[in-house]
Each structure stands twice: as C-alpha cells, then as structure tokens.
Amino acid sequence: MSTLRWARHVTVATAALVMLATAACGPLVGAVDEPTVLAAASLTGVLPAINAAARFSFAGSDTLAFQIQQGAPADVFAAASPKYPQQLFAQGLVAQPRPFAINSLVLIVPRANPARITGLRDLSRDGVRIVLGDQGVPVGDYARQALAALGLSGVLRNVVSLEPNVKGVAAKVALGEADAGFVYATDVRPVRRKVRALRLPAAAQPDVEYQVAVLARAPHPAAARAFVRRLLSPTGRRILVDHGFRVPAG
C-alpha cells in the first residue's frame, strides 16, 4: 500500500475520531439509582452515615463548584459555605440551596506543641509555622476572617503553606510538620490523638454554615431529593449532631 493512501487513512480516521469526541458530550449515567454527592472534605465522616449507598466525592467546596460548572454528572452538592451553592444557584446550575449544618473554626496544634502555642496571640511570634486553607477554600477564608476580626492579620507572614482543602491542613499539623492550623471542629475527631484543639474567642468565631442543593441537571433527581430530605430530617440532624456538627434552627 502506498504511503499516500496510508496517510489518507490516518487523516480520515483522525478527523472522524475528533468529531466523535466533540459530539459525544452526553452525561455518564450510573447503573444504580443512587445519588452521586459532591461534598466538602469536612463532611467525609458524616455523610456516609446519612446514606451509605450514595457515591461520594469529597474535596474543597471551591473545587467541587468548579467541577459542577464544568458539567460534572452529579446529583447533590453539599458545601462548607453558602458562597458556592448560592453562586451556582444564581447561575441556574443548582436548585434553591438549604442550610443543613453549622460548624465552628478551631485552632489545632500538634500534641507535643513544639511552638508552645496556648492562644491566638502566640501565632504572631517569629518562626511559628502555620498552615491555612488557600484563598477561596472556605476554611482558609474563615481563618483569615477570624484573624482580621482579632486584628491579627500580621500572623499571615508566618504561613508556610496554603492547602487546597481542610484535610491537608489537619494532616500537616497531625504529622507535627506545622506548628498550628485552622480547621473545623469536626476535623479534629479523626486526628484527636495527634492534635490539641484551641477554641476561638466568640468575637472571632465565623458563622460556618453548610448548604446543600440538588443539581439542575442531576441524572438521578428523585434519589437526589431523597438524599436531601434525609439530611434535613430529624434522623439526619441527629447524625450530624453525633458527628460534632450543630444544626440550624427549625
């Protein structure tokens, strides 16, 4: 076979494949009728107790919001702040978000406490190694908010790493590599043998409200609504409280 004809084969087939790839943008539909839930990393421990059969993808709320904007074939979005659900709601990508849980921000230090931190003021001492959530990651934004409320924004110069989600912050402190980090109260439980948690003064405590919403293009809308119903039900609220969350009134 001549080189020319061979090359024509390649060209035609390549063009066909590219067209096929561009055309085939339909959602991937799972076989079982269980919802796919995109949830904030801080919900890793609790949501499987609400519905063990659902499929979960845990990450930073901002990452998940980005995935939804890019058309992720998921059913439910549970975020660690109202910011992203409301943003997606305004864009018509999710149905009306509902608040379902409240968390609080705490400062964690390694059990050995190498930098001898007993309060937030100690964070501004030279050489203290602090890890925060990155800008736009809710736990990082809440931490910056709390520090600003206390007039301690100077602490930011001691930051050694900006983590993409709250578990990254908790892990670096639990491993003793960082001297302190801000996480949610509920993130302390999995690492409680390795860290100590310090409460924030009430004046600096931000409102950490979780909101949940069903995606506008959910492949399993009925299962998605059932998941949200259970989350908001007395059973769901009890499970949330058992895992250290507070629940909104009503």
């Binding site: 930073g60 736009g136 990651v137 900006l162 983590e163």
Partner: peptide
Amino acid sequence: GSLPGVTQTLPLAIYSEMNR
C-alpha cells in the same frame, strides 16, 4: 506545601488558580 514565591511551582499555581 504550597506558598507563592517559595514552594508554589507551576502545577501547584495552576491548581490553586483554577478554583479562583
């Protein structure tokens, strides 16, 4: 870790920027 100007390499900057 990831800190701009110190340890934030191109791939880390892309990941951090992607969400913003």
